[in-house]
């Protein structure tokens, strides 16, 4: 990363005001902590905020391995040219002092004979994660067997924000390049994180995270949308390994 960008990102770590969401530390622990020394009068510029622990950041490191079923095609009255694919995927995210990288691979194995080609997709993004924001950008590369040209490259972007009880995510060429754009919202209900959103131009996407034990979990996700004459849908069941739940 360019040094200047890193400086800007580090500078942005400094909260302008007190954190909005409750301190994650238990009350007893908070009581035991030493009281902060009062700032010397007239020395505001010297008040350096404490660094954000990775556990306090909006996103945490995580690995997900899933199997999906993907349908793609286009239609006209009386006609539909569609193909189904078995779609295993592996994705990961790593957060280190705010510096964040996420990526993944997806194999689209056509189930339909003589339809679309076998394709491999790789996504790689980098960015920064704060307490309440995360911004990642990168590229999605797709290689399709026998295609001319074989390689297809698209930009991808994901912006996430925490608004207290609800989080929001704006994705462009997201979900391993499968969803052209989406705006989704997530919340935690009964210990389970649930997200639901609008997939551009006409469609929906949703996911449900189910804690299994410790750092292990199960994620069921899917989307369905229509773009011009084409339509897409996918359901994925994945195992996740990440932060303590």
């Amino acid at each position: 990363m360019h040094a200047l960008v890193l400086v800007v990102l580090l500078a942005a770590e400094a909260p302008a005001a007190a954190p909005q969401r409750p301190d994650p530390a238990p009350p007893a622990q908070a009581a035991a902590a030493p009281a902060p020394a009062p700032a010397p009068s007239g020395s505001v510029a010297l008040a350096v905020p404490p660094p954000i622990a990775d556990a306090e950041r909006l996103l945490a490191s995580e690995v997900t391995a899933g199997v999906g079923f993907l349908g793609s095609g286009y239609s006209q009255p009386g006609y539909r040219l569609g193909d189904a694919h078995f779609a295993p995927s592996l994705t990961g995210r790593y957060v280190f002092h705010g510096l964040t990288a996420d990526g993944g691979v997806l194999f689209a194995v056509p189930v339909t004979a003589d339809g679309t080609a076998f394709a491999f997709t790789a996504s790689l993004r980098a960015g920064w994660t704060w307490r309440k924001w995360s911004l990642l950008a990168g590229a999605v590369l797709q290689v399709a067997s026998g295609a001319q040209p074989a390689l297809q490259v698209l930009p991808t972007l994901r912006l996430s924000a925490d608004f207290g009880p609800v989080g929001a995510t704006l994705g462009v060429v997201d979900v391993l390049g499968l969803v052209p754009a989406h705006l989704s919202f997530d919340m935690k209900v009964g210990g389970r994180r649930f997200s639901f959103g609008w997939a551009f131009p006409i469609g929906l996407l949703a996911s449900l995270d189910l804690p299994v034990s410790g750092r292990w979990g199960l994620k069921v996700s899917g989307f369905a949308f229509k773009a011009f004459q084409s339509e897409f849908a996918m359901v994925t069941v994945a195992g996740t390994f990440g932060a303590e739940r």
Partner: peptide, 24 residues
């Protein structure tokens, strides 16, 4: 027949648009 090369949104959407202009 305009067959998308792959499952990708771009391939499929553009195959659909091509089909619409040319066939439909």
């Amino acid at each position: 027949v305009f067959q998308p090369a792959s499952h990708s949104v771009l391939d499929t959407a553009i195959a659909g648009l091509t089909d619409d202009v040319a066939n439909e």
